[in-house]
Computed example of a mutant assay.
Amino acid sequence: MTILVVGATGTLGRQIARRALDEGYRVRCLVRSSRKAAFLKEWGAELVLGDLCEPDTLPPALKGVTAVIDAATTRPTDSLSIKQVDWEGKVSLIQAAKAAGVDRYIFISILDAEQYPKVPLMEIKRCTELFLMESGLNYTILRPCGFMQGLIGQYAIPILEKQAVWVMGESSPIAYMDTQDIAKFAIQALKVPETVNRSFPVVGSRAWSAQEIIRLCQRLSGQDAKMTRMPTGLLRSVEKIARFFQWGWNLADRLAFSEVVASGRPLTASMDETYAVFGLDPNDTTTLEEYLQEYFGRIMKKLKELEYEREKAKKKAKKRSLFK
Rank of each mutant, 00 (worst) to 15 (best):
M1Y: 05
T2A: 12
I3A: 10
V5Q: 10
V5C: 05
V6N: 02
G7T: 05
I16Y: 09
I16A: 05
A20P: 04
L21M: 10
E23F: 11
E23H: 12
Y25V: 03
V27M: 09
C29R: 01
V31Q: 09
S34N: 07
S34F: 09
R35Q: 13
A38L: 12
A38P: 03
F39L: 10
E42A: 15
E42V: 10
A45E: 01
L47K: 06
L49A: 12
L49E: 14
C53R: 13
E54Q: 14
L62I: 07
K63E: 09
V65W: 01
V68N: 09
V68D: 06
A71G: 04
R75T: 11
R75W: 08
R75G: 13
P76S: 06
T77M: 14
D78Y: 08
S79N: 05
L80Y: 03
L80H: 13
K83D: 12
Q84P: 00
D86K: 04
W87D: 03
K90N: 12
V91L: 11
S92Y: 08
I94M: 11
A96S: 14
G101K: 02
D103N: 06
D103P: 00
R104M: 09
I106Y: 04
L111V: 11
L111N: 06
Y116P: 00
V119H: 05
M122R: 05
M122W: 11
C127K: 15
T128K: 02
L130P: 00
L130R: 15
L130I: 08
M133T: 02
S135R: 11
G136Y: 03
T140M: 07
C145Q: 13
Q154E: 13
I159N: 05
A164R: 12
E170M: 09
S172P: 01
I174A: 03
Y176T: 03
M177N: 01
I182Q: 12
I182A: 06
K184C: 09
K184V: 01
K184M: 12
I187L: 15
A189L: 06
L190N: 10
P193V: 07
N197G: 01
N197F: 03
R198P: 02
V203W: 03
V203F: 01
S209L: 06
A210I: 00
A210C: 01
A210G: 01
Q211P: 00
I214H: 02
I214W: 01
C217N: 12
C217H: 04
R219M: 08
G222L: 05
T228G: 00
P231M: 07
T232E: 04
G233R: 11
G233S: 11
L234Q: 01
L235W: 04
R236S: 08
S237W: 15
V238P: 04
K240W: 12
F244C: 15
Q246A: 14
G248I: 05
G248N: 07
W249V: 14
A252F: 03
R254Y: 15
E259G: 00
V261F: 14
A262S: 14
S263Q: 10
G264H: 11
R265G: 01
L267D: 06
L267C: 05
G279Y: 01
D281Q: 04
P282E: 13
N283C: 02
T287E: 10
Y295K: 12
G297F: 07
R298M: 03
I299Y: 03
M300Y: 00
K301A: 11
L303I: 09
L303R: 15
L303Q: 15
E307Y: 06
Y308E: 15
Y308D: 09
K312G: 00
K314V: 11
K316G: 11
L322K: 14
F323D: 10
